[in-house]
């Protein structure tokens, strides 16, 4: 599995490239959903590093996504006219990285003071942070205030989205499946014991937070250049909850399960479009039913012991 990890990443990027090359033949609606799925995977897998593997309950993922989205969109809006068409993919990648990095900085700024908190308290602080971000964008004229940013160039393609998703999965899985990365799981299980083993719990928590925020920022950048319109309203508390639900449904700390849940929960609302008004009811019932029947997560078929066996 370890030897295969890098090959797996390359294979995934190649698949993304191949499928993307054919995307001209696709129905635009399905293509849009395929991109949405990729973005959901990035969000869910990166949040899984924080909430699942490291056990720090964050409700701020939409906030980090907004930071990345607005940063990247602002950059491309300002710079696209002065960049030749051939260099525009490079501009987009640069904007995506910038979005990720600014989001990671935001993650550091939120994480350092608030990671002393545990459980519900951390959840509330990250929730508050997400709302603060939204309100800042809503009131700042540079980012279009309540209308948000419009006319963002359509740079997001299936290739970029799926490649970014593959990279996210690779980074999170590689981090966790190593002796170093077992520290995240230790912090999840018992911080005091982790410190007694020479593991610095704060450093691991901040690392998880910053890494998670980076990928959320990249997802935001992809989202902005996919929808071409960015409204602060779209990054409210419910958006964070959506991602948290993917992580819980997939089984906290189970990467494969979380990917499947991200796919399911992105496609499901489209399938339920017929009963638009009842969508949220069906969705809520699904979550309640799940928590009653499978509290360990829908796709959590494998347990940690078999996972560690697979890694060795």
């Amino acid at each position: 599995m370890q030897l295969g990890a890098k090959r797996w990443l390359i294979a995934a990027v190649l698949v993304a490239f191949g499928v993307s090359a054919l995307s001209g033949y696709f129905n635009r609606y399905y293509l849009g959903i395929a991109i949405d799925v990729g973005i959901s995977i990035i969000l869910a897998v990166s949040l899984n590093l924080i909430n699942g593997h490291t056990g720090q309950f964050s409700l701020g993922h939409a906030g980090f996504m907004a930071v990345g989205g607005f940063t990247a969109a602002k950059l491309t809006l300002e710079l696209t006219p002065s960049v030749p068409a051939a260099a525009q993919p490079a501009l987009f990648v640069g904007a995506m990285l910038a979005g990720g990095l600014v989001a990671a900085l935001a993650g550091l700024a939120v994480g350092l003071p608030s990671l002393r908190l545990k459980g519900d308290y951390l959840a509330i602080v990250t929730l508050g942070f997400g709302e603060i971000i939204r309100v800042i964008f809503q009131t700042s004229p540079a980012f279009g205030a309540a209308t948000g940013l419009t006319g963002i160039p359509k740079f997001t393609t299936l290739f970029w989205t799926w490649s970014a998703a593959a990279l996210t999965v690779y980074v999170v899985a590689s981090l966790v499946n190593s002796t170093y990365g077992r520290g995240f799981l230790c912090v999840h299980d018992d911080e005091v014991a982790a410190a007694a083993m020479g593991i610095n719990p704060t450093r691991y928590k901040v690392t998880a937070f910053v890494t998670g925020a980076f990928f959320a920022g990249m997802a935001g950048a992809l989202y902005a250049h996919h929808k071409q319109v960015l409204k602060p309203d779209g990054f409210d508390f419910m958006k964070s909850i959506d991602v948290v639900v993917m992580v819980i449904l997939g089984g906290m700390g189970n990467t494969v399960g979380v990917i499947l849940a991200a796919i399911l929960l992105t496609v499901l609302p489209e399938l339920l479009r017929g009963f638009a008004d009842y969508r949220m009811i069906v969705y809520s019932l699904l979550i309640i039913g799940l928590m009653l029947l499978r509290p360990q997560g829908l796709f959590n078929l494998r347990r940690r012991e078999s996972r560690s066996a697979a890694a060795n």
Partner: peptide, 14 residues
């Protein structure tokens, strides 16, 4: 205070 959800191997490995 072991790491309850980690394998015996991983408990020592960390």
């Amino acid at each position: 205070r072991l790491f309850p959800s980690l394998s015996v191997f991983d408990n020592v490995r960390v």
